[in-house]
Design a protein around this nucleic acid. Structure first.
Lengths: 219, 219
DNA sequence: GCATTTATTTGCCGAACCAGCAAGATTGCT
DNA sequence: AGCAATCTTGCTGGTTCGGCAAATAAATGC
C-alpha cells in the first residue's frame, strides 16, 4: 500500500551501507596516507579507525593502495555520459575536447587534489591508478566507437582517441597541480587544443589491416 | 702504460655478472609465468631455478611482477637516442612519428611478444609496467623539451607530446597483438599519422594562460 | 702475491599482507 | 516473526619483502 514509494529502487539500505563503508574506508585510508605517508599506514590502522575488523577491510579493498585510489574510480561513466550528449555535428576531436572541459567545469575539491598529488608522488599508488585507468580507457573507447559508428575491436581509431584523450587529461592535471591558481578547465582546454585526433575516415576502413574476417580469436 | 686500454671502462666483471643475473632472473620469471600463470609463481620458484637464494632475488627485484616486466625496461634511451638523430628540419610530430617507426623497424621476437601479451592480460603486471612507463615518459619529455628548446617544467607541450606518443605506441602494440601478421611498424606508422601534436609556438609561451584568445586556429 | 677495501650473497628473522573458511550477527522480504 | 540472503569477524596458513650481520667474492693497492 503505502509501501509503493518506499521501495528500494536501485538503492537498498544494504547497498547504501556498503557504499558508505567503502567511501569511509577510502577516506580514512587517504587521510592516514597524507598524514604519515603510505608506507606507514597499515591495514589494521585503517580498519580500527573505521571500527571494523581488518578482515572486513579486505572484503572491500584488496590492498590499501586500492583503498586510497579507489574513491576516484567513478569517472568513466561521467565522461561517457557527457560525451553522449555532445551534438553529433561536432567532429570527434571537438566533442572530446568539449567533454574533457565540461568534466572539469567545477574545480576539484581539496580531497581530490590531495589524492591526485599523492598518487603522483607514490609509485605504488600510481600503479594502482593505472589499473583503474585501463578499464576506463576501454569504456571510453567503446563509447567513442559507438559515436563514430565503428567497433574498437576491428578499428584502432576509438582506442587511439580514448588513449590520447586520457593521456592529455593526465598531463593537464599534472601540470595544473604544479602551476599556480589557473582554473583547471582552462588548462584542459588548452591542452586538448594542442593536439588533434582524426575522426575515422569511412573510406579507409578496415581495408588496410586485412584482418577483418579471420583472426580475432583469443586476445 | 699498457694498462690504459685494459681499463674496465663501463663493464667490470662485477657489473656484467650483475646484469646477467638480472636478465636471467627476469627470463626465468617470464617463462614460469607463461607456463603456470603469474599467481602460481612464487619467488622461491624463480630463485631455485636460478640457483640463488630467495633473498638474493629480492636484492634484484622487489617483486616478481617487477622481474617479469623488468626485462623490457630499457626503451627510453633507445627512443631518445633515435629522436636525437632526427634532422632538425622535421616538425616535432614528424620527428616523433619517424622515431616511433624506427623503434620498431625490427619485428619483436617471441619473448617480447609473449611478455607484451602477458602484461596486457594480468592487471598486476600492467600496473608494474605503468610505473616504468612513468619515468620513461619523463625522460622522453625532457628530450623533447631539449629538442624544441623549452623546459618541461614550465611548458606542458613536451609532456603532452611525450604522453600522447607513448599512448599511441601502446595502442599500436595492443592492436598489433590482436591482429594478424601485419608488420608492427606499419601499424605504428598508421597510428602515428592518425593524430597530431603541435610543436610549441614560441609566441604563445606562458603568456596565454588564462587568456586563451579563442585558442589558436585549428584547421 | 697478499692484504685491504668494497660489493654481493645468504640465512635468519619479523612485520605485514591477503584470501579461504565457517560461525555469528544483520538486513530484506513476506 | 520467521526465513533466506548477505555481511562481519576471528582464525589460519601461505606468501611477501626488507633489515641486519656474517660469510663469500671481486676489485684495488702495495
Amino acid at each position: 500500500m503505502d509501501r509503493m514509494n518506499t521501495e528500494p529502487p536501485p538503492v537498498g539500505l544494504r547497498e547504501r551501507k556498503k557504499r558508505a563503508m567503502r567511501a569511509r574506508l577510502s577516506d580514512i585510508a587517504l587521510r592516514l596516507a597524507l598524514e604519515r605517508g603510505v608506507s606507514q599506514v597499515r591495514i589494521e590502522d585503517i580498519a580500527s579507525e573505521a571500527d571494523v575488523s581488518p578482515r572486513t577491510f579486505n572484503n572491500y579493498f584488496s590492498s590499501k593502495e586500492a583503498a586510497i585510489v579507489g574513491g576516484a574510480t567513478i569517472r568513466a561513466e561521467d565522461f561517457c555520459g557527457i560525451l553522449k550528449k555532445m551534438p553529433a555535428e561536432l567532429s570527434l576531436h571537438d566533442a572530446l575536447r568539449a567533454t574533457a572541459i565540461e568534466l572539469f567545469t567545477e574545480e576539484p575539491d581539496r580531497d581530490w587534489i590531495a589524492r591526485a598529488r599523492l598518487i603522483r608522488s607514490e609509485p605504488s599508488l600510481f600503479a594502482e591508478a593505472a589499473k583503474a585507468d585501463r578499464s576506463i580507457e576501454r569504456t571510453i573507447a567503446t563509447e567513442i566507437g559507438h559515436r563514430t559508428g565503428n567497433d574498437p575491436t576491428s578499428h584502432f581509431t576509438p582506442r587511439l582517441a580514448a588513449a590520447v584523450t586520457i593521456a592529455a587529461m593526465h598531463v593537464a592535471v599534472e601540470f595544473w597541480l604544479d602551476s599556480g591558481n589557473v582554473p583547471l578547465r582552462e588548462i584542459v582546454g588548452q591542452i586538448m587544443a594542442k593536439f588533434h585526433v582524426e575522426d575515422i575516415a569511412p573510406a579507409e576502413d578496415r581495408k588496410d589491416y586485412h584482418l577483418a574476417p579471420s583472426d580475432r580469436g583469443t586476445p
